[in-house]
């Protein structure tokens, strides 16, 4: 625990973060590219699914997108906690950089899901429980981005967005359960999914097809690869944000100095 503390403290210095991330970035990107290429290669050379045929190929990008959408929100929540509780100087940079990337993956999960749904279900959009809860996750992302952009004062915006992210992460499980249902057999707990009240569940399979090993391993490789891609983009975004703040600090210092010079000149 002590050692971990000291590592995060070391990383707290933005200058050190810039140096470290600069060396790390190409490696992260390289690993991401290799894993994605390998995962997709194995996914595309595997035999087609006996039920879904070739459309199963969409799974290798759809499932990682959905996973990264959720992981992105968790990352924002952890960063927000770091900002509000520990006042970690990089926590807000991390939360701000993660939002658009997480939102992009969530949107991609929706788009690929709907393109996968058209041949399977016959329409681009069904109010399938999982698809709906991903849509609501996307709305939460929109809320975070909208709140941050509509408050002028940057430090105020950071803290308020962090509060919203933590509220969101508390309510998100309830949203998920209310939409998707919950079943814990050994507790005897059974909460039905929301859409079972509205439409017969025989229209589409809510449990999804069982996954075969020839599909599972490529999926795991591609999910891991896209996770590395997420962190590559996130690190790049954080570096950009640190640079942006330096530019801003320099500009403010310049304006202050110019004002001082004017004051001195006026006094003479």
């Amino acid at each position: 625990m002590m050692q971990k503390q000291s590592i995060t403290q070391k990383l707290a210095n933005p200058t050190r973060f810039m140096a470290l991330s600069g060396t790390l970035l190409p490696w992260l990107a390289g690993i991401a590219v290799i894993l994605i290429a390998y995962g997709l290669y194995r996914g595309w050379t595997a035999p087609p699914d006996y039920q879904q045929g070739e459309t199963i190929r969409i799974m290798y990008i759809h499932v990682p997108s959905a996973w990264l959408g959720m992981m992105g929100y968790a990352l924002i929540a952890v960063s927000s906690f770091g900002l509000l509780v520990f006042r970690h100087p990089l926590a807000d940079v991390s939360a701000k950089a993660a939002a658009p990337i997480g939102a992009a993956f969530t949107m991609l999960a929706l788009v690929t899901g709907s393109l996968w749904g058209k041949p399977m279900w016959g329409t681009y959009w069904v109010w399938d429980a999982r698809l709906t809860s991903v849509l609501l996750l996307f709305f939460l992302y929109l809320g975070l981005i909208a709140l941050r952009t509509s408050i002028e004062d940057e430090s105020l915006a950071s803290k308020l967005t962090a509060v919203l992210a933590l509220v969101g992460v508390v309510i998100l499980p309830f949203i998920k359960i209310s939409v998707e249902g919950l079943s814990i057999p050994w507790l005897g707990l059974e909460i039905p999914a929301w859409n079972t009240l509205h439409q017969p569940s025989s229209v589409f399979r809510t449990d999804g097809p069982k996954i075969h090993a020839s599909q599972l391993y490529p999926l795991l490789y591609s999910a891991l690869g896209f996770t590395f891609l997420f962190f590559t983009l996130h690190m790049k975004g954080m570096r950009n944000e640190i640079l942006r703040r330096r530019v801003k600090a320099l500009r403010i210092a310049e304006v202050d100095r110019a004002r001082e010079r004017e004051a001195v000149a006026a006094a003479e």
């Binding site: 609501l136 709305f139 939460l140 929109l142 809320g143 909208a146 709140l147 509509s150 408050i151 002028e152 919203l164 509220v167 969101g168 309510i171 309830f174 949203i175 359960i177 209310s178 939409v179």
Partner: peptide, 18 residues
């Protein structure tokens, strides 16, 4: 926030889903 009322709806409505 600017456009507070509109923003409020965007932030809060998804949280009312349950």
């Amino acid at each position: 926030a600017r456009r507070g009322g509109l923003l409020l709806a965007l932030l809060i409505l998804p949280l009312y889903v349950p």
